[in-house]
């Protein structure tokens, strides 16, 4: 009885911690797909890129992976701005964003993966930091710092983005740009520029998300694909672009995966996200909190 309670308790707590991390992974897509309607399926590739930059900062220069990822955010922001500029000129302005736009991001996903394989090989890479290893204990519940620190960083990231989106002119403009670009012109904002900034931010978030990914688990280039299902499942279920919804949906998926892997084995957990996504699409495409 006690054993079963411990098992459940630990599965629940690690699921919640995992869910917090999933929120950081998804938040970039909540911005690009949820608010800007840009189906950036290459987002997980940028996250893995973030893992590798954190890995280099850590293993070559000995920096803390998470701190260095925060320092590197401006570089990722610029990368995002550059990609959006190409996307804008090539697809959005031609009014042909659907098929070719999707193929564009799919191509980027593939190029990023193959390039990382060519540079780093297919071996798993990991980082070193003082919080990887030790655990806190609350009764029978384990709280590994390896999950706790990413959880805190992740929520801080989501909170910062939330504050930016709701309390600055640009943030509010981003929220309005998908609904009604022409209204933005009326208040003197250039929709293209607003989208460029927002897309830059979404890619900047991938730097931090990538760093906490490699803190939580060893990373190899093709790991990006495992996250596509998760990210879009959370994003859709969270109601496309709602940050609060994203966090809650991420926690739910985290707990579901944690239970699946505790009771059925970790090799099944990738299937959870897909089931989650399909059920969401079939039953409630507007998300948990969205209006239909």
């Amino acid at each position: 009885m006690d054993l079963s309670f411990d098992l459940w308790g630990n599965a629940l707590v690690s699921g919640l911690l995992l869910g917090g991390f999933y929120a950081a992974v998804t938040i970039g897509v909540s911005i690009s797909f949820g608010m800007l309607d840009i189906v950036n399926i290459a987002h997980p590739a940028f996250i893995v890129l973030g893992s590798y930059t954190a890995y280099i900062a850590n293993s070559v220069f000995g920096f803390d992976p998470i701190l260095s990822s925060i320092v590197l955010m401006p570089a990722f922001y610029l990368l995002g701005v550059a990609i959006y500029s190409v996307y804008d000129v090539s697809f959005e302005r031609r009014g042909d964003a659907s098929i070719r736009g999707l193929a564009f991001f799919f191509g980027l996903l593939f190029i990023a993966e193959v390039t990382l394989v060519l540079v780093f090989g297919v071996d798993y890479r990991l980082v070193e930091a003082p919080y990887i290893g030790p655990s806190l204990h609350a009764g029978a519940i384990d709280l590994p710092l390896r999950l706790l620190v990413p959880f805190a960083v992740s929520l801080a990231l989501v909170l910062c983005l939330h504050v930016f989106m709701s309390h600055t002119f640009i943030g509010r403009a981003v929220q309005g740009v998908a609904q009604d670009p022409s209204a933005l012109r009326l208040v003197g904002a250039d929709p293209s520029r607003i989208k460029r900034i927002a897309f830059g931010l979404s890619i900047a978030s991938a730097s931090v998300a990538g760093a906490i990914l490699i803190v939580i688990q060893p990373v190899e280039p093709s790991i990006a694909r495992d996250y596509i299902g998760r990210i879009f499942a959370i994003c859709v279920m969270g109601g496309l672009g709602s940050f609060g919804g994203t966090v809650v949906a991420a926690m739910i998926l985290g707990v579901m995966e944690s239970f699946t892997s505790t009771f059925y084995g970790p090799s099944w957990s990738p299937a959870v996200a897909f089931g989650f996504l399909l059920i969401t699409l079939a039953v409630r495409p507007a998300g948990l909190f969205g209006r239909i």
């Binding site: 189906v39 399926i41 996200a273 495409p285």
Partner: peptide, 13 residues
């Protein structure tokens, strides 16, 4: 787009 995302996830599953 939802169809596309679903096919991507389906491959993983």
């Amino acid at each position: 787009t939802f169809f596309s995302i679903a096919t991507l996830a389906m491959a993983v599953v």
